[in-house]
Design a protein around this nucleic acid. Structure first.
Lengths: 170, 170
DNA sequence: ATAAACCTTGGAGCCCACTCCAAGGTCAAG
DNA sequence: CTTGACCTTGGAGTGGGCTCCAAGGTTTAT
């Protein structure tokens, strides 16, 4: 049994964060004291750790909400469902890495081209590159990320943890 | 001379985006028609292209706002200032890449460990990994990004394009 | 003269994950 | 019995970048 501050300290998050997770349906304390203080059980703590681990691999809270409801209802889901979520996320992460690699390469070539000295920026090659297109700075916005979440377009719920998408034929 | 829609089409952005940039002080049309329509000159178009190129290398609009004001006042800045911004951004991008690489590795090992088949998720290794810590899923939040912008702590202006930090001794 | 295609404004909404605040209630130690 | 550390709530703010809306005015082509 933990009070909010205790659980927060234990898991190295802020109490505010736990209230935030509760507001969004991710983690509700099992009970309250008579005076209204939140009381978390060991099970609640385990759920929090699940959330934090899922965050640590890159899932958003929406996705974690879905993972949690799958976890509570395992028998109605198959490995392919879970692996599918991981693979979608993996693809998103890889797409983002690719984008950042572009940024990195461009920034590096800008940096390399600049003397970096104490002379007036009037002929700074970085500013010149931004003023008119060069190899290092291409606007081509092809490699844009179009992350398409797991959700179907229908679901614009903004309370995260809601019944998480009953499997359609179920 | 372009109307908003024309410039938008030319640069493949939306008119809304140009109004947004204006609202935040990044790009103000040189004039208006009698009836109030925005009129952009070729110089405005060049400024927009500068913005889009800076975006393409990963700068945020706040940073671009700073770059723009440097660009308009080059003689009061030196290469080191400009290169400094690029290098800070480069470091931020690299930090983010490192974080995403962690995500990628974790996700990959989760994915690899899961059969992905049509059997019940009751013994899914992904869920098990999230339920209790494993090699693939470590919570250690050391590699957190603490991006510290160029700005000094003093400046919490939320109108982006404001006289951009007169160099202190100036 | 009228319809279609443009433009104007202010403001709201979205995604993401907190973070902080104020005004007040609770609880254990001294 | 007071102090201080804790807890409660609702709501606003942050950074980032749009995107969309409604209710109206303007221009252009037919």
């Amino acid at each position: 049994m933990y009070r909010i501050g205790e659980l927060a300290d234990l898991c190295e998050v802020k109490a505010d964060t736990l209230r935030f997770y509760e507001k969004h349906g991710l983690l509700t304390p099992s009970s309250r004291t008579d005076s209204g203080y939140r009381v978390y059980t060991e099970t609640d703590a385990a759920r929090l750790r699940f959330i934090l681990r899922a965050k640590a691999v890159g899932f958003t809270l929406n996705e974690i909400s879905e993972l949690l409801s799958i976890d509570l209802d395992k028998s109605n889901w198959v490995c392919a469902d879970v692996k599918g979520m991981v693979d979608v996320k993996l693809a998103q992460v890889q797409a983002k890495i690719a984008e950042l690699n572009h940024f990195q390469a461009s920034l590096q070539s800008l940096s390399d081209a600049c003397c970096g000295g104490p002379r007036s920026a009037e002929h700074c090659s970085i500013l010149e590159a931004l003023e008119s297109s060069t190899d290092s700075v291409r606007t081509e916005h092809d490699h844009e990320l179009h992350l398409h979440p797991f959700q179907e377009p229908t679901d614009h719920f903004n309370d995260l943890g809601k019944a998480a998408h009953e499997k359609s034929g179920n």
